[in-house]
Simulated assay, not measured.
Amino acid sequence: MSHEIVSPLPGLFYRKPGPGKDNFVEVGDAVEAGQTIGLIEIMKQFTEVRSEVAGTVAEFRIDDNGMVNPGDVVAVIE
């Protein structure tokens, strides 16, 4: 069963905690419930995007540095 992780707010989606850092997770990685998979920045404020379920990252639907709107699907966890 798949679970969609949706953006809670508008902004820029980042898969890394900062420039030169590794991505929080990659497609195929196992994640735990509550684990951070990315960040959304709006006006220099950063909000963590977390998986609500344990599973495997099946895909990202928003590119790194991509714009998101509230309700947009960021990633899918299987």
Rank of each mutant, 00 (worst) to 15 (best):
N23C: 12
M43C: 15
N65P: 11
P10G: 13
N69I: 11
E78Q: 13
G71H: 13
V31W: 01
F13Q: 05
P70I: 09
P10N: 10
V53E: 06
V74T: 11
G34Q: 09
E59R: 15
P10C: 05
G55I: 03
I62P: 00
D64K: 09
G11A: 08
T47C: 08
Q35I: 06
F60H: 08
L39R: 05
T47K: 05
V57T: 04
D64T: 08
I40K: 01
E59T: 12
F60V: 12
M43Y: 12
A54V: 09
E4Q: 14
L39A: 06
V68S: 03
M67R: 14
V68D: 01
T47L: 10
Y14I: 01
A33W: 05
M67P: 14
I5Q: 00
I62V: 15
T56D: 12
I5V: 14
V53F: 06
S7Y: 02
V57E: 02
N23Y: 11
V31T: 01
I42T: 15
V49Y: 00
N69R: 13
A30G: 15
S2D: 12
F13K: 00
G28H: 10
R15E: 07
F46I: 08
K44H: 08
P8N: 07
G20A: 03
E52G: 15
E4C: 07
S2P: 15
K44I: 07
F60T: 07
E52W: 13
A54G: 14
H3P: 04
L12Y: 04
H3Y: 10
F13A: 06
A54P: 05
G20F: 01
A33L: 07
V68T: 06
A33Q: 05
P70E: 14
V76Q: 10
V27G: 12
E59S: 15
V68P: 01
E4T: 11
V73S: 02
D64L: 09
N65E: 15
R50T: 08
D63G: 13
E41S: 13
D64V: 07
E48Y: 03
G66E: 03
A58L: 11
H3W: 03
P70G: 09
V73P: 02
P70S: 11
G34R: 06
H3D: 08
D63L: 11
R61P: 04
P17K: 03
A75Q: 02
I40E: 06
I62R: 02
L12S: 11
I42Q: 15
Q45F: 13
G55E: 02
A75E: 00
F46V: 08
G71Q: 14
G28A: 09
F60P: 04
V25I: 12
P19L: 05
G66R: 03
V49R: 00
F60K: 06
A58H: 10
A54K: 05
E26V: 11
V49F: 01
V6W: 00
I77C: 00
V27Q: 11
D63S: 15
I5E: 00
E78K: 15
N65W: 07
M1Y: 10
P10E: 12
E59L: 12
V68Q: 01
V27H: 08
E48P: 02
M1T: 13
V31F: 00
G34T: 06
D22I: 02
G28P: 07
I62W: 00
